[in-house]
Design a protein around this nucleic acid. Structure first.
Lengths: 347, 347
DNA sequence: TTGTATGCGTTATCAC
DNA sequence: GTGATAACGCATACAA
């Protein structure tokens, strides 16, 4: 095992002092070219690598950021993280990932761990469960940039990057209306979360703008799974409430709904038009490709990183609260396109 | 901004020394219960949090591990990472992620960065591009546990966790043979990678064991994409080589192949049976669900973590080279099931 | 231009 | 039982 070599080792080698080595390695202007060259070469030769930990302790910056998400193996979240990683890598930052499973204990725990690890920033998609504001406050007090993405909470001084869920809901609903649908079901998620609330509001507004009445019994709550979509449709069919379209706030639920409808002999999109939300990769692979609303996860991640960099690179910017709202994109596919003529976009 | 409070602050508060505080906080046996209690309470009250960076510098262990993958937003990799995170979280380890995009510069770069960050372990799915052994050697020299997963390279002293790709290839091929197929195409990946080589060898062996002749022109190289699958089929059809089944080493390629075959009027699985590899989530959502070979990514991640923990927790185990080989699971779905009677498994 | 001394926050090794 | 001090590896204010 090769011993860890430090600036002291290379100082000894050259009969100079560690301070000089440090300066030479950091391109400090007041150092002779000769010494610098010598130091750099020797460092190279001895295969010296800077100990980031010592640097971090010294400078108070770890060059690590923490990302907190419910689960990493969800395409949306892993893609957001990819965006963050892509954007921050050139600046030498690394990403530490934490999963919460939407458990508030884990959420608080993760925040504390990241704080102890002296991360330079924390990015999180907050769960609905009541994470105490005090935990969040601690992050703010420590002056660690905190940025919410996707699921945010309104906290003074905290930036956020989200998509316009209201608009997404509006667009999806309007699209279904344009297809001639009049009784549009909305399969919602946990409405204590802003994102689902906003999608529902967008849905309502679109109905209103097009002279359609909002009916409470066309709104059902689901969890984001295929099974949930199947049972929602079962319930709808049993209740005998007429409907000719489904706007689901989850792609998984949409797929489940489609599956159940087909099983019961309904034709998609002729009898029922369906549109999901998230633009999960599988939606476009399906034989009956599923319309959806793209949440631009890669862009979201990149924007999170950019907001962070702004705060970090510009010292006086520290207190700036920035709210970035990305525009969702309607992906119109086969599951909602009754009239081929008005198809705007494929795949 | 609340000042960072250290053990010195709480020492001053209690008119004792930092060393005592440290001992009290670390449950050092030789400390009076009274003092311990006092310290713990004061620490709590002052909201003290241990600075992991200082601890890391002191101890030489960061409690971070690094994971190096080509891209994080691939279900397989994000799920492996999830497995690692799940398993390591209870031990206080955190995961730092790095992406290589299969670029050898990034790969070497990431290794160096992780080494500088003093991670306690490095887990990587190595790319085929020729990452110099010297880089790997540096990790070994530093005594940092290195574990390969999925795509490994045989390096003395390095553990690995993989699936039995040979078996996966064998099973998939045998399944197609059992369906009555006789001219089975194998759409391979980059054959400089062990995993693809092994799947191909499994394919050959299955053919041999069932008295079928291996034909070189039934093997085509693809990159893992839908488009690649489409063009492979185009090429096959153009060449007029008869075939009645496709075993693809990639699910994406399999989907592309199916798409092209259907477009040309072929029926799946009647005319051509198709099976992919990886068990990507979308394979089971498709209307014509796609058979595939599951690579147990979650288990793979968990096993990586366990091998790591063994090496770390047991000091004398440090040099043990462990090769874990997981068993792939055949997921038989509609795309390859000609005879309903022998369908073994549905989703 | 280079050297000296100090601190970042902990823990460990001595003493007492 | 507790205090004093050194050390982890680095960067920097201050001297020279």
């Amino acid at each position: 095992m090769s011993k860890k070599i430090t600036i002291y080792d290379i100082a000894k080698e050259l009969n100079i002092t560690a301070a000089t080595v440090s300066r030479a390695l950091n391109n400090n202007p007041k150092i002779s070219d000769k010494t610098r060259k010598l130091v750099v070469e020797t460092a190279e030769r001895m295969n010296y690598k800077q100990n980031k930990l010592a640097l971090a302790l010294k400078s108070g910056k770890s060059n690590n950021v923490g990302v907190i998400v419910p689960k990493i193996n969800r395409n949306f979240f892993s893609t957001v993280i990819k965006g963050i990683e892509d954007e921050l890598y050139p600046y030498g930052y690394h990403v530490i990932i934490c999963q919460t499973y939407d458990l508030k204990e884990r959420e608080a725990d993760n925040i504390n761990t990241l704080l102890n690890a002296q991360v330079d920033g924390i990015f999180m998609s907050i769960s609905n469960s009541m994470l105490e504001d005090s935990v969040i406050q601690r992050v703010i007090d420590k002056n660690v940039p905190l940025i919410f993405f996707d699921r945010k909470r309104d906290v003074p001084g905290v930036s956020s990057v989200t998509i316009d869920d209201f608009k997404g809901g509006y667009q999806a609903t309007e699209h279904l209306i344009e297809q001639g649908c009049r009784n549009i079901v909305q399969l919602s998620g946990d409405r204590s979360l802003e994102i689902y609330q906003d999608r529902l509001e967008g849905y309502k507004k679109a109905l209103k703008d097009h002279g359609l009445k909002f009916k409470e019994d066309l709104v059902l709550n689901c969890v984001s799974s295929i099974e949930s979509g199947e049972s929602a449709v079962k319930e709808l069919l049993k209740s005998n409430i007429p409907f000719d379209a489904i706007f689901s706030s989850s792609d998984f639920v949409a797929v489940g709904a489609i599956r159940e409808l087909k099983k019961m002999g309904y034709k998609i999109p002729e009898d029922v038009s369906v549109i999901g939300f998230s633009n999960e990769p599988f939606t476009k692979f399906m034989e009956l490709s599923v319309s959806s609303v793209d949440q631009a996860p890669l862009e979201m991640g990149k924007n999170v990183a950019r907001v962070f960099l702004e705060q970090v690179l510009d010292a006086n910017n520290l207190k700036i609260e920035k709210k970035v709202v990305l525009t969702p994109e309607l992906m119109i596919r086969m599951s909602s396109t009754k009239n081929k003529m008005i198809k705007k976009k494929a795949i």
